[in-house]
Simulated scan of single mutants.
Amino acid sequence: MAGALALLLITVVLVLLVFSVQVSGSSMEPTLRSGDRLFVNLLHSGSKAHRFDIVQVRLGPQREQAVKRLIGLPGDQVRVRLDGRRNVVELKPAGQQQWLRVENPAWEAADDHRVCCDVLGRGSDDTTAATVPVGMGWVLGDNLDYSDDSRTYGFVKLDDIGATLNLRVLPLGRAGHISHDDVVLRPVS
């Protein structure tokens, strides 16, 4: 009996290590903390990821694995502008005429003043809309002040999104589903 229990425990630990990713850094705070371990949902990778999903994505010239939030989908227009001292992320979904404001409670305290976008989806000196190309996405961290994301690296290939991450498995005290229901789109007034 003890041998079966040990085998079960080893199996659980192996599955956890193989099918999970550990958050490193503060770019997704307060939603995720450094050290959080998230279940990797391989069924919703790449083009199957949905707007506002938290995703595992390869970023930058080193193609390092990062955890970010998917904001812009192919055909969407995206921009970041300043409203006083606050960054406002806006998008116009593909095929729609109205600009919508992305409201993410995690961005409320952001003090970052990077506006966006150039033609590659990176930060720029001016607030200009950029269109997300076919096969690409646009990602941001929930901690706008400390996130190297599309504002730094530009659009990301949907093929570089390895998985969605919507289940925290560690620490046990905060384990459970990570909802994105609090991230919403509202008409720009």
Results as ranks from 00 to 15, higher is better:
residue 189 S to L: 07
residue 188 V to R: 06
residue 150 S to H: 03
residue 66 A to C: 11
residue 47 S to Q: 08
residue 177 H to N: 14
residue 102 V to C: 03
residue 31 T to N: 06
residue 79 R to A: 02
residue 126 D to G: 11
residue 79 R to I: 04
residue 49 A to N: 02
residue 86 R to L: 08
residue 6 A to Y: 11
residue 59 L to F: 06
residue 85 R to I: 07
residue 115 V to C: 04
residue 170 L to N: 01
residue 52 F to Q: 06
residue 44 H to W: 07
residue 43 L to R: 14
residue 15 V to I: 15
residue 168 R to A: 03
residue 143 N to R: 06
residue 11 T to S: 15
residue 40 V to A: 03
residue 176 G to V: 12
residue 100 L to R: 04
residue 85 R to L: 10
residue 46 G to P: 02
residue 133 P to Y: 11
residue 117 C to S: 04
residue 128 T to H: 11
residue 179 S to C: 11
residue 110 A to G: 09
residue 8 L to M: 15
residue 13 V to R: 14
residue 57 V to K: 00
residue 70 L to A: 02
residue 109 A to Q: 14
residue 116 C to F: 01
residue 108 E to L: 08
residue 78 V to Q: 03
residue 104 N to A: 12
residue 118 D to P: 04
residue 3 G to P: 04
residue 119 V to E: 13
residue 112 D to K: 08
residue 138 W to L: 05
residue 14 L to W: 13
residue 92 K to G: 01
residue 44 H to Y: 08
residue 168 R to S: 05
residue 48 K to S: 12
residue 19 F to A: 06
residue 165 L to A: 05
residue 54 I to T: 08
residue 16 L to N: 15
residue 100 L to D: 01
residue 74 P to Y: 15
residue 93 P to K: 12
residue 80 V to G: 01
residue 143 N to A: 07
residue 95 G to T: 10
residue 117 C to R: 00
residue 147 S to H: 07
residue 120 L to G: 10
residue 132 V to F: 02
residue 17 L to S: 12
residue 132 V to I: 07
residue 109 A to V: 09
residue 25 G to I: 06
residue 117 C to H: 02
